[in-house]
Design a protein around this nucleic acid. Structure first.
Lengths: 190, 190
DNA sequence: CCGCACATGTAAGACGTTACATGATTGT
DNA sequence: ACAATCATGTAACGTCTTACATGTGCGG
């Protein structure tokens, strides 16, 4: 039961989406979550269904009668709305990002000569694409009547991608062109 | 068994640390991991012990005889080194960061008037501290003979914190001073 | 010698991921 | 009506977090 310990972010997000968009079925929520918060709070199908049953058990959601494929329509209850607003009011934790790439970089000296450069380039490409995608989205939103809150989340994504790209671009050349060995010649760029 | 599906990042990190610093006990690893990779790959005690037993079962580590408090000294085996290098060579996935704060921002319109500003300020303070801490660390490393790889990971942390701070500073004022309501007056900054 | 405080290691539960069963739907 | 395909929901698994036992050293 989440009743005593407060909602987790995933459950809260579901409640918030139902509150904003009205009653939905599980599949609808999968799609809505993907498009609305998928970029910074990915949710898988399984996760959603699990939370849905838990939240229904906690009386935060009410489930309609089973439909075609055991589909049920979930609606927010007053208790669910209260729980959501309570969660929203609490300041969220930091949750520092875990980057596997940084582990690879840390041990990069143990990689064969060109390999780290390849990996770095690969990531650079992916983040460039991502940034382009976000910018396009932002341009779209500029013309529409999108809420400033939504645009704020998108602008975070843009800043983040820019930071990653700048970091990659600013990495010392020694990191990429190093001969196979554990340490640089003590003296640096000569 | 991880043997077939490849190491996970956590196991690989442990192998890498043992390879670099030599045989260690569980508690040593807890401390070492905290200081060396704790900023971008946090590891809890439980996690470490679990991986230790798994890796020992896979013959990637060899465990010495039990000591004072059931303490055992773990050493990397040749097979473990091979596994580590294989993991290192593969390009790591993206693993986009999950930020609870962005969920709060998305639903920020449902917060009482000043609350979002408070939350934002709170985070700004924390990230400022963090950035200061990283900068100090970087200054220390500048004088020492730290590897460029270690410094590269730190520089990512700095860029990231800067990005967060810039994002917070660049947020439209309407987000913070909004009256309690769901949407801005349609007309923007007048 | 006793009791407090702390560090090491353990166990249980929450969360996230991957892969699978099953029932609709579409095109022929 | 049949088969292929896809969407929905489920189950099994791996990982991470939290909270707990147990043992060790230190101060009285």
């Amino acid at each position: 039961m989440d009743s005593q310990r407060g909602l987790n972010s995933t459950a809260a997000a579901l409640l918030g989406l139902l509150r904003r968009h009205g009653p939905m079925t599980g599949g609808d929520l999968v799609r809505t979550a993907e498009t609305v918060i998928g970029d910074y709070w990915p949710l898988t199908r399984s996760q959603i269904y699990r939370e849905l049953t838990t939240l229904t058990g906690d009386q935060f959601l009410s489930a309609g009668p089973p439909g075609p494929r055991r589909t049920r329509l979930y609606s927010l209850t007053p208790a669910g709305e209260t729980a959501f607003l309570a969660w929203l009011q609490a300041s969220p934790g930091d949750a520092q990002p875990r980057m596997p790439l940084l582990l690879t970089v840390l041990f990069g000296a143990d990689l064969p000569p060109g390999r780290l450069a390849e990996i770095l380039d690969d990531h650079e490409r992916r983040h460039r694409e991502r940034l382009a995608c976000y910018r396009a989205l932002d341009a779209d939103l500029a013309g529409s009547d999108a809420s400033p809150y939504t645009r704020a989340t998108l602008s975070f994504g843009i800043r983040h991608e820019q930071a990653v790209l700048q970091w990659l671009a600013g990495l010392p050349a020694e990191l990429r062109h190093r001969e196979h060995g554990s340490h640089p010649a003590p003296g640096g760029a000569a």
